[in-house]
Design a binder for these strands. Structure first.
Lengths: 192, 192
DNA sequence: GAATACATGTAAAATGTTACATGATTTT
DNA sequence: AAAATCATGTAACATTTTACATGTATTC
């Protein structure tokens, strides 16, 4: 899967593993991220498969750059992938939900601390989508040859914005639900 | 991470790898899922680490069941994990967003097909949260010793509901944005 | 007669994370 | 003087997925 992200970036311009890591960090990292080491090893594998080609660019007083370019086979592979519709919804892994699912025995105070901390983090993330990310995309959209592309980038940014709004709303609901404990009197003392 | 899910289930009752897979399928699978084979290998590793104990239950005309129970060390490990707040937001991988991000060169028709298909899938998933999942949780909540636990399960279900609503809303927005192409006239013919 | 449920697992491959290793240059 | 940036990579480990292997009993 990472390979498609790398191929995607390489359709715009040739780049080194280091460059690609930075492209990712400032663009897809919120919905697809990878470590530097994984990028290097994946590029190497992709070259073996003929999806990319590399050449070394010597530099003075810096390590050499290994610059990759996408091949025709690489372009085809990427296009096949984008054109092929997915028949399933992507499975997520949400650590917080897993913790919460098994938190009935935990002190409510600890749960609340966790949820409030998460709220702060998600508020910060929402803010980032609405300012930094928005600005970065607008700037690219100003260039004529990228304005079409920018519409798609904006769609992914918008997803992030809606997601964080939803997340914060859910956290508020959940925090409230924990603060206000269930009314047990009716059930625990049957009227007779 | 899977190990905490397994420990969590085992706090309720002893179970085999097969049982645990089914518990997962009907409860946490929407935010934490695993394959049967991973469950078996993880349980084995956990036994080595002393978090669980197993014994074999012979059966006639069926393979033997290997039933696991959680140890004191296992309970502690689980409690440590739930009590330890996370300082970061979980990183997601959304294949659809990655595809969309690199779809500027693809025919709009193909993108629309993909998005409409996804909308159907997410509508079905939303429906499942609102009916099946909701009912399952209500049934458990009826038992007195599980009603507290059921509040947490309900919180994770509610997340799924909000998430799917958000996802569908975003798909609608995005589909509309692609149908109505950008107005290029103003920019491509500068007034002079 | 075919499919599903029951029940276990191994092996290999793919994917991802963490740690280690190097070393000059530029910025704070 | 310390930290960050530039730039590469390897090795070990952990996690996850896919495929293989077996065989009975029940349900459609």
């Amino acid at each position: 899967m990472l390979k498609y992200a790398l191929l995607g970036f390489l359709t715009y311009k040739n780049a080194s593993g280091y460059d690609l890591k930075h492209f990712m960090d400032v663009s897809t990292s919120n919905f697809w991220n990878a470590k530097q080491s994984q990028i290097y090893t994946t590029l190497k594998k992709m070259e073996k498969e003929g999806l990319v080609l590399s050449h070394t660019e010597p530099q003075e007083s810096r390590p050499n750059r290994r610059v990759y370019e996408i091949t025709t086979a690489g372009r085809e592979d990427l296009k096949n992938w984008t054109a092929q519709p997915m028949m399933e919804i992507g499975s997520r892994k949400e650590k917080l939900l897993l913790k919460l699912f098994f938190s009935a025995q935990l002190e409510p105070q600890k749960i609340l601390t966790e949820l409030r901390l998460q709220k702060n983090l998600h508020q910060a993330q929402l803010n980032k989508y609405q300012t930094t990310t928005k600005n970065v995309i607008s700037q690219f959209a100003a260039s004529k040859d990228l304005q079409e592309d920018a519409r798609f980038w904006e769609a992914t940014r918008r997803f992030g914005e809606l997601y964080e709004e939803m997340y914060i709303r859910w956290l508020d609901e959940t925090i409230e639900g924990i603060c206000k404990p269930v009314d047990r009197l009716e059930n625990s003392r049957p009227v007779d």
